Amino acid sequence: MNQTSLSAAELDAITDAAAHWCMRLHAEDCSEQERAACAQWRAADPLHEQEFQAMQEIWQTADHLPRPAAPVITLSARPRGRALRRLASAAAVALVALPIGAWVGWEQGWLPNSYERVESGNAIARAVLPDGSEVELNLNTTLRYANYKDERRVTLVNGEAFFKVQHDTQHPFVVRAGKGQTRVTGTQFNVWKYQDQVKVTLVEGSVLVSSNSSDPDSGYRLGPGMQASYRRGDYEPALSQTYAHDTSLAWRGGKLILDNLPLDQALPLINRYLETPLLLADASTGSIRISGIYNTTEVNRLVSNMPKVLPVYLTRNKNGDTVLNRISPPPRKS
């Protein structure tokens, strides 16, 4: 089924059907026959499955709702009207299924009254969130926005984003990344995430950064020009001061700048743009330093060119991953 050939009414009908099946699968009296019928409907067309997964995402923002073990499918961006239409359908079925629970969920801060997924592909993307905040997304970045009664919540699923937050003292803006979070009321800052590593760079205003989102009040407050880094298991974030020519935000101009970094620090920045990560053979290889300015859309060329500019050679391990190996210097003559 070609989505572009469908009318608005036909697309809405698919969204309504996805909402119906989502509601039935969460119902206690859902029969095996209904589950089979739902599976048949989802398999009938990729768009059915896409809409169903989008509906699941909305339902899953409420922690107290059951979460089936269906795989999450990356969705392509849609016009805002479609997202709102989907949200309205989800809200409607939620009110049918949980007439009291839905209201209590909002009042208790469990359920959002708006939800949006934003993602970029192979180009930098910009979006305005429902609260008026602006966000700029680096390549291959995905985030989710949900508006709760007590906070505006963003989850940075992967990638990197620069935020200009609409000021609202009574309604904090929280960005969750990895196991930590950044809490603000109105400011400009950047969040970078690769695997379990996270770095927050503050440009303007003030933010509170915690390495543990379950205890957000234990964080550290940053001033302009400061950075906080953390990864899974860190008790507290590591703080640093940026220098005048810091390159953390060079990606906004489409550049990756490596300023005399050892490879063990440069590789997370490089791997961020690769389909499969580049690995180090050992700590000695990781100590080699690299410099250069590269286009973020062409970082894959950097890998093949490394042996031309660094004392390294490339091999593949048993999993097929590319590995950097240091070329040992010849022994010194006695």
Rank of each mutant, 00 (worst) to 15 (best):
L6I: 01
A9V: 04
T15L: 12
A17G: 04
A17T: 10
A19T: 02
R24K: 11
L25D: 06
E28G: 07
S31T: 13
E32D: 14
E32H: 13
R35S: 11
A36P: 00
A39V: 08
Q40Y: 13
A43P: 05
E49P: 01
F52V: 01
A62W: 05
H64T: 10
P71A: 09
V72K: 14
G81C: 13
L87A: 13
A88G: 09
A92F: 11
V93N: 02
L95S: 07
G101T: 08
A102W: 12
W103C: 08
P112M: 07
P112Y: 02
S114V: 07
S114G: 06
Y115C: 01
V118C: 01
A123M: 14
I124E: 00
A125W: 12
A125K: 10
A127H: 11
E134C: 12
T142F: 08
N147S: 14
N147I: 05
D150Q: 13
T155G: 05
Q170F: 14
Q170M: 11
H171W: 10
V175Q: 02
K179P: 03
R183T: 08
T187Q: 10
N190Q: 10
K193Y: 07
K193H: 14
K193Q: 13
Q195R: 15
D196P: 04
V198T: 04
L202A: 03
V203S: 07
N212P: 00
P216A: 11
S218E: 09
Y220L: 12
Y220G: 07
L222A: 05
Y243H: 14
T247H: 12
S248F: 10
K255M: 14
K255Q: 08
N260A: 12
A266T: 07
N271I: 05
Y273M: 03
L274K: 06
E275P: 00
T276P: 03
D282A: 04
G286D: 05
Y294S: 02
E298H: 15
V303G: 02
S304L: 13
S304A: 15
S304K: 11
P307V: 02
K308W: 09
K308S: 14
P311E: 02
R316I: 09
N319T: 11
N325G: 06
P331V: 08
K333V: 15
